[in-house]
Each structure stands twice: as structure tokens, then as C-alpha cells.
Design a protein around this nucleic acid. Sequence first.
DNA 1: TTTATAGCTCACTATTTTGTTAGTTATTGT
DNA 2: ACAATAACTAACAAAATAGTGAGCTATAAA
Lengths: 117, 117
Amino acid sequence: MRKKNSTNFINEKYLHERCALNVAIDVIGSRWVSQIIFSISQGANRFHLMKEELPNISEQVLSRKLNTLEKQNIIIKRAIPDTIPLGVRYILTSKGESLLPIFESLCAWGKSYDLGA
Amino acid sequence: MRKKNSTNFINEKYLHERCALNVAIDVIGSRWVSQIIFSISQGANRFHLMKEELPNISEQVLSRKLNTLEKQNIIIKRAIPDTIPLGVRYILTSKGESLLPIFESLCAWGKSYDLGA
DNA sequence: TTTATAGCTCACTATTTTGTTAGTTATTGT
DNA sequence: ACAATAACTAACAAAATAGTGAGCTATAAA
């Protein structure tokens, strides 16, 4: 649980109010998140498929990230009808989809400067 | 100091190797960093000017972020000749400059979805 | 009946990041 | 002599994030 009176929290709020850039960075800047979004976009849209895609992530962490992304309206959780046990599929919202081109830019940036170029 | 045998560290390495996107996100994804880079690009290129621009950042944190950015080759530190005490100016490398358009995309993304649009 | 799969959650610890307080070097202004 | 400015750093504490291990519900297959 976050302490809502900590300097840490206050600074986060300050930055969010200062510029939406900081909001965006808080969404995408935590571990696994961009990989999860990318995996969903590539069809790995179920819990067990994401586990396969990201073999080093723990189930607890994956679950937490998915919940956060759902609250942020980046993904939506959908039950898959007539599956037993009931399957769940995740889909990107338009908000989530619109991150993909930005990920490409960041990826290209990372690649081109990999060796200090 | 980081523990180089922690799962945390190993996962970070795994993600960096998996895709340069994760390298990029680790550069820009920590607090204040994007604001610092942006401030330098706008001319707030000295320690005391950045303190003015970001009144809530502590000197220790600002110093740490600047050192990290220097090691990552995003900024370069330059002494200002004939100043007493010796002034220091920070300038963006081309690697640093090339983040600016990405920041704009992220900023636009953040703005357009601010109210759950 | 045991094992397996899907999709989680809970309580917890470990690790890392962020922020605090005080102090440094050198020089100028009062 | 004393305070102020510029540009830090060191040692530390607080907070947040990441990861661990066990367990749950429901069904089906061996």
C-alpha cells in the first residue's frame, strides 16, 4: 500500500501534474509491462501463454501487472465462453494499442545506441 | 550497490537481452529523468537552474541522476572556463537529443488518455 | 485417487529506489 | 569574521517494487 503523505508520493503527484509525460512513463516504466503489452499484441493473450513467453516472470508478478494494466485501462479481461475451467483472454484497448508505435521508437533508439554509437 | 546474483538483477539482464526496448525503458523510466533531460534541452543546463526548475528534487537525487545519465552517455558535463567557483554545464549528446521526439509522443499519449478517453 | 491444467490470491521477504541530513571546497560580498 | 553561492558527496532511513512459496477452485484424464 502506498503512503499517500510520503514525499515519494507527493513528488509523483507533482510530476504527474507538471506533465503527462510523467504519467505515461509511470505506466510503461515498470518491469515486464512493455513485454506483457507486446506479448498480448502478438497473440499471447492468455495467462499461461504469457508465462510461456516470459519464463522468468512469477505468476504473482504477472497477475499483479495484469491487474494494474486493467485498472489503467490498457487491457481488458474477457472470459472465454464455454471453456472449462473458464478461460480468460486479455485484449488491448485503443489506449493500449496506441503504445505499440512508441515501443517501436524506443526499441529502435535502444538498438541504435546499444554499443555507445 | 546492486546484487549481481539476485533474481531482480538476472531478470533485468534477461529483459535487456531479449529486446532493446527494455534497455530504453530502464534509461527513461526512473523518476525525474525525463524532466531533467527536457530541462537541459530547454536551457536549464546547470545544477542550480535544474534545482529551480524542479523545486521538489533534492540535491542528492539530482546529482545521482546526472551521474547516471552521464554514464549512460545521454549527457556530457562541461566545465565553464573562467568561472569562480568553477561552473558546470550539462549538454545533451545526440543519444540524449534523440529521446526528445519520443518524449513528445509519450506526452501526447498521456494527455489524450488523461480522462480515460 | 492422484495428477494435471487454468488462473489466480495471500502473506511474506529481498532488493532496489527515493529521499534526508549534514558536510565539503573554494571564492565573493558585507 | 560571517553568510552566501555553486556544485557537489557520504552515510543513512524510508518507501516502494520485485520476487517466493504455498494454497485455492474447478474439472478432467490416468
